[in-house]
Structures are given as structure tokens and as C-alpha cells.
Design a protein around this nucleic acid. Sequence first.
RNA 1: GCCCAGGUGGUGGAAUGGUAUACACGCAACACUUAAAAUGUUGUGAGUUUCGGCUCAUGCGGGUUCGACUCCCGCCCUGGGCACCA
Length: 979
Amino acid sequence: MQKYNPQKIEKKWQKKWYGSTVFKAQDKSKKKKFYLMVEFPFPSGVGLHVGHCRPYIGLDIITRKRRMEGQNVLFPMGWDAFGLPAENYAIKMGIHPSVSVKKNIANYKKQMKNLGLSFDWSREVNTTDPGYYKWTQWIFLQLFKKGLAHKEALTINWCPKDKIGLANEEVIAGKCERCGTPVEKRDKVQWVIKITKYADRLIKDLGKVDYQQRIKDQQINWIGRSEGAEIEFLLDFKKDPKLNENRGPKGERAAIKVFTTRPDTLFGATYLVLAPEHPWVTLATDQNHDVLSNKKEVADYAKSIKNKPEIERTAEGKEKTGVEIQGVVAINPATGKEIPMYVADYVLAQYGTGAVMAVPAHDERDYEFAKKYNLPIEEVLVPNIIDKRNPPVVGKQFVERKNVHAIVKDPKTGKYLALKWRKFDWTTFPMGGMEEGESAVDAAMREVKEETGFTNLKLVRVLPGQVRAEYFAAHKDQNRISYTTAVVFELVDHTQVDIDQKEKDGHDIIWLDESKLNYENMTHAEVEQWKQKISAKIPAYQGDGVLINSGEFTGMDSVEAKSKIIRLVGAKPTITYKLRDWVFSRQHYWGEPIPMIHCKDCGWQPVPEKDLPVTLPNVKKYQPTDTGESPLAVMEKWVNVKCPKCKGPAKRETDTMPNWAGSNWYFLRYVDPKNSKKLADEKKLKYWMPIDWYNGGMEHTTLHLLYSRFIYKFLWDIGAVPKSLGNEPYKKRTSHGIILAEGGVKMSKSLGNVVNPDDVSKQYGADTMRVYEMFMGPFEQMIPWDSKGVVGARRFLEKIYTLAHPPSHKASAGRSQKEFTKKEDANIAGLLNKTIKKVSEDIEAMKFNTAISSLMILVNAFYEASGNITKENLKTLLVLVSPFAPHLPEELWQEVGGKGLCSQQAWPKYNKKLIKEEAILLIVQINGKVRDKLEVTAGMDQKELEKMVLASPKIKQLVGASGVKKIISVPNKLINIVL
RNA sequence: GCCCAGGUGGUGGAAUGGUAUACACGCAACACUUAAAAUGUUGUGAGUUUCGGCUCAUGCGGGUUCGACUCCCGCCCUGGGCACCA
């Protein structure tokens, strides 16, 4: 008796496939092209783990199916091999990174082949290959030539132990990724690429592509576009008024520019805040200036903040600090009032202009700061409510008035005092108009006393801000605009005085639960606002509404007021992004050299294109130097060159590129990997691009995915890729979920819980490994590995093997052969066709788990019908299974005498007619509950069906004497009887 | 705090308005076996039962509907991303 021996089968077919051209994509073909890509890995010393395999297997399934459907599929693989781990290994072991990388690549490739992944290995690329990075450098030169790359002084992360600059992604929880030393800040001149110039297009063009929504959301979020305005605040030098006479080159007075998204609140700007790094602060505190009366204090504060490590400065819940800048004030351009200036740590230097106008009444952070330093808070905006239950009546005049609401809580019951009006079906708080000169508290107490008689009240607080409301006051037959203040009280006791008979007749006194304080129960919609304010931690109102205390803009809608106030003060509408420009310098050895030469006389000069690539020289030591420069800096022979312009002595740039540089454009290289004249041949680009489907990890959404979209757009702009292609590289982007270790924790080397695909393959076979990974759960979902669950996949494959070897199957114990009727044969045919449909659709939707489950159902049905499985049916099954588990079907295909390779068969088509079932299990419900199931013929007449259902004894009994009210019929599925 | 995804048996999950718990793991009993493994058969949400059923269950509370895991409103919890972005 033969046994399923995956190891033997798999080796055999892998040899056959990889020794042939079955996976090769054709650059010329009449077939439809399909370019499918998974992210290429960094080949680390540890090798692939099962998590890496998930996207590879998933997209391999799609690739194999599309090939069987007759498409010309490009499914390439390569290596993103520059990067820190290879360099760290070199430092530790003294082995050149190119040597360890080569070894790792060989291992990765072997692992991938062991899984039967159908990559086209003839197009393999490697970012560390000079023939490849020649073009990475070429792209940099183009960026430089177009003014998108320049050197800039920046504050970077600095590891004092390793003496090296770190990228943000190399800093983990404020510590150096390599040695764990807390990171410091240091100013360094770095190459920067202006990705922000493309920010708008990177958002807008998301409309053209089919990415999962979560990916689009995250990119939009990351770019963080906000519309607002830059407003100038003139300065008034109090300590040295002469300076007010000093004019700038165009005759302008000294001013501070702020960025704000809320110019509508300008009238409420009561002070100005500068970031500690703001250039004006630096200037005003340097040796040459003496404009502040507390210069030392300001200078010391700014310095202390700048020296603070990033983690400390941005720690959650940290209290804001700041110092007033004395001797100078700013002038609010809307009110003309003098306002104080502060330097404070809560303003970010990198965003906007590094300075903000503080509106404490309407901004949480400003409120917090103003409270701490006792700064004026001026309300200029109120929420506005148009009462939907008592809307203003068209044509009637509006009367403005000031109102109070008294919110009285009985602490014993937790309930709130309210009035139920008899005449109007209203429920309100005790309320009324405020009289001339009366305070809100007095007015509220008066109203409570007049309307309810309660006198013993304890003031809790006056709620901040007013609410504006427009409504029709039926009892006075007038439209009203009310500005209402709310006062919160606690009821001390139930002492009550007699109230006016008119009031008594007007309403009943009721007590409402807190949950009833809403628009459903209460008449005036502003109760919702009050409720929010009662529980609000910070009383700054941040929404839109209507302006108050804003001069000529008072009463105007805040959205409208934005543009009008911008115009009033001559401000500039501005768009700001959270996205920063891309720091492109690294002080590492193992990266692409930046192809620039610095000449004392000519400045930065690009390396002539004919001299590319600038190859990475061999060094003896990979450690960075004491000056924090890359190890290349000490290679004098390499560094010292002639200036390309004046031929005088000059030096090469010794910084290298970040590890994102090579992955920016690798998809273009797959199209034409060996071209030495161009990035890639234009014809080939036109044929293959854009990528039809790109799958990768969510962790690359905001870096790699964004960077590569940007670089592609740039290449498109300069015509390096054909204009006819459109300016988005990826038509469709999907993401897989990561695989967790058993117990739901992260799989990591340090925790020792990494599952190696080689071990799984060794124990169960690669086919089992593939099927299990796809069957575990939804592809895009994070999921824990379950070593017990793997056997389910193996059993599934065993059953298929057994189907093709019926003698051993018949011999198995306890199993009886069934006699099959025609009807059961028809069922098998129906099931087979349904499965073809489901598997075909599920693969495209990446619902691999349900595709496999439907294959399991089919196999179970075949298994039960073992004697009756025709060779044709078995062959169809093999073809359906082969994208998921390609090796076993290949073997069995040969055994049953199939022609050619199973993986080269045509993908089966289903027969619609066979899917339709003749006999249907009709569900009978009574009042929506399942009460009976009847077997009926498909397409029966509805009336007849209803008759039949009502005649069934069970239903007859349940319906009884109640009488049928209504019958709802879903054809061929269900009948619901409503009693 | 903001944005996104999710919450269903002992476990991974299926069902996106129409039989909740497909498929698989695990578990239990039985068969085969000297025995074990493997394989097969049967059972497996909870409660109740006169073994016909009945009742309850998809994070919690409401709503829409003949009918809701699915749609709407409010809340709780978990995961991911961003985070003093003015």
C-alpha cells in the first residue's frame, strides 16, 4: 500500500518546475498581462519565518490561478539587502556585508523554492548590486537637478555610545536600537528630499487607485493636510521703543507669523506662543540683541527645553511649561489690543510657522496653559442650535434675549428638576430671561423660586460659555434668538415657598433621570450642549457656531467668518502638512553612496551620470568614526576627487542613502532587470506597468508605500517612465495580517517562539504548510499560530491522496461502500460546480480560508462516494486544489494519466445549470422563528406552496385558531407566516 | 484625544437582511488493534425535557423590520495607526 509521502513528491516537482520555464513571464505575448507583486524581503541571517510566508503563499495562489486562466503573469522576487542588520553583523564578526548577504539570499531562495512558490527567478533583483544601485543613484541625481534634494541643518537623533546618527525608525522608545543607550539630539547637516511638494498629489491621486480603505485612511492621516491661514502679529518693543521705527527691507514692521486653522477665533487670541526653537527666540536672546527685559530667563528656558530628550518632552499627560517674553508685546490684528508673548514647550517648531496665536476659550491646550499662567480667556464663539421641535416660524420677526437655565440636581436621588408645561407639551429646565443688571446666578435662583418654590440651593458653578438658539416661543408668539447661560445647583433640602397661581396652573414639577436630559425628552435642544458641558473636562468649545464679541463679525456663522477675517487682517490662506520632508542621509557604511561631490569653490556638484555607479569601496572597519561620519569618511583615496566642474580638489559625500532608497523603484527594474542603459526599457515598461496588484504589510503604508508612490510620480513627471502610464505605480494594494505566536503574542527571536516554515514542511510537507496558513483565518487579519491545527490541513491532503488510491481506501476499516442513485450523482455534480464557482470567486477576494473550506466539503463528499468518483471529477478537483497545494495534485495528475503538468491545465469553468438545485429545503417560519422544514421542488408556484405549508400538520397545529395575518415568501428559500 | 478594524461555541473561524455556530482543531464514546498510533463511525453552544420538542444565546442597552450577527442610535471592551499638528 502506497502512502502519501510529501517530502518525496515535493522535491520531485520542484526540480521539474524550477528546471523549466513554466513560471517565466513573457515580455511579448498575445495573452493578457498581469503584474502581481509581494514586497521583497531584507534577507536576514535568521531566515524566513511563517509570517513572511503568508503573503507569498496568498499571492502565489492568485498567480497560479491567473496563469491557469491563460494570463501572462509576472510574479517576481528580489532582495532589499542594504540595511543595518547586515552592517551590525559585519561590525560584530568582521565579515563583509556582501558576503553575509549572499549567504542569506541563498538560504531565503532555498526556503522559497521549498514552498513551491512560483516566482519568475529570471528577473531576480538585488538592491546592493552596483548594476542596480547605479539607477538608485541616478534617481537621486535627477531629484537634485530638479531642486528636490538639498542639504539642510537638522536636529537628528544621536547615539552617544555608537557615535552615530539614527533615523527615527532606528530609535525605539527613545533608545538606540543597537545598544539601548538613550538617544540625544544633535544638529547635523543632512540631505533632505522635498516629498512635501507632492503632498497634495499623494492625497488626491488616492482617488484613482484601488487600495484597501484602511491603507488610504492611514496615508491621508499621515500626510495630515490642514487648511488655514498665516496671520501676522506686529510687535511692539516696549523696552526699546526705538526699534518700532526700524523697518524691514520693504518698509515693514517686525512681526511674528502664526499658522491657524481657526482664523474665525482671532478676536479671542489673548496671547502669542513661540516654540523654544523659534528663530525669533534665538535671535532675541543672542549676544547682538537686547530687546527683552528677561533675556536670561527666556534664553535659559529655551535652552533647557531644547536639551530635553524627545521622550521626556512629549510624554503623555506632561504639564505644559513656558516663560513670558518681557519687553515686547504683540498686537492682535483684529482687536488692535496688545497681547503678551510666551515661549512654551507645547508649541512645535517643525509645524506651521513654529508660532501660534493662543485662543484659550476655544482650544484645549491654550486653555490649559492660560489657566496655569492666569492669562485672559475670552469667549468669541458659541454653539448654535436651530430648534427642530420649535423651529422659527417663517415671516415672524426675531427677538434677541439673554436667558438662563437653572440645572438643579437633587444629590439624594441624582435626578434633575424640570417643568412639564401643560399648554404646550414642553419639558424644560426652570428658565427665563435675564433682567438688566442681574447676574446669571441671581436670575437662575429667581426663576427656580418663581417657578417651583425651591429656595435652598447650593451653587455648583456657572457653566462656561453660552449657547445660541433659534426657536419659536409659542407662549409669546414670537421667534427668538436666545443667548443662554446655564447655572448648576444642588438642592440642599426640599424647602418650598408658595408659588403664584398662574405658575401653578402653567406646569407640573417633575424630576428627570440624567439619561433623560436629551432632545428626545426636553424641549430646548441646548440641553444636549449643557449635558456635554456638565461632564466636560476642559470647557473650551472647539466646534463651529456663531461669533460673539467679535466686532462687526458678531452674529456671523463661524465658517463664513473664516474667510472674511482672513481678508480683514490681510492674512494669507495657507495649507500645512504633518508630513515632513524626507531625511535622506545616513552615517552608515552599508548603503548606496550619495553621488555628490563637494568643492570649496563650486559647492555641491552632482557626479556626472557617466561615472555612475559610485561603488561602495571595501573598508577594513565598519564602525563609524569619532566625528559621527560614515566609515567612508576615512577612505581618503575614495573621498578625494576632482571637482566635476572646475577640476580642482574636492571631496565625495560620505553619507549613504537610507534603506528605503532601493525599494522606491524596484518594481520598475523587474520589468527589465539587466538593462545597463536605462532604468528599464520603455517598451517593456509600457507593456508591464502599472502593477496590477501589490500586496504588503500595513507597517509599510506610511513609509515605503508613500515614498515609492512619490518617486514614481517624480519619474513620471520627468519622463523617465512613459507618460501614457499614468502617475500611480500600483493599481491595487492589499495587506495581509501578521501571524502571532501561540498564545497571541508577537513572534520574535528574543522570545524564542518563532515558527520556521522549514520545520513545518519537514514534519507535514510544504503543501500542508501552505494549506494551513491559508486556512487559519481571514488573510488580512492578525492571527495566532496553532501547531495542533496544522494536522487538519494534512488530513485534507491525505484524503485527496486516498481518493486517487482507492484500494487502500476500500481496505480501511469500518467503511462501507454506498450504493449511489442517480440523484446522488446529480448532487455530486452540483456540488462540484458550486465549488468551482466559490473557489474562483474566493481566490480573487483573498478569502482563501473559505475557498479551502469549500474544497474540504467537496473532498468529504467525494470521499463518502468513493466508488463513484469519475476520473474527470477527480481531475477537476486536482486542478482546483493545485494553486493552494501545488505538489500533490501534480503527482496525482501524472498517476491518473493526465496530459502535461497539472499546474498548466486550464482553470475549470462552472456550469450554471448544474448549480441550480431541483430539490429545496424550504424553511417555514412563524413570526420569524423556524418551525418546520419541508422538501419541495424548485420553482414551485407560490400560492400552491403556501397552501402546502399551511396544510402541513405541524404548522396547522401551531397556527391553530390565531389566524394568519400575512405570509412573506422568499422564493426557493423561506416562508414566514405572521400570526 | 483623533482615525481605522474588530467583539459569534472549549479554540481558529463561517454566515453582510432570510435555517446562527459551515469548515477545521480539540474533546468524548465506539469500531479496527495484543496494545498504541493512524484511520473510520457517532456525538459535541447553554438550559430544560414526557426525547416530540421548548426556551435562551452572536460585547451591553435601545430602535427599524414579518424577520437583525448583519442596518440605525447610544455605550463598554480589545487590537492597530497617529498623537501638544494650533
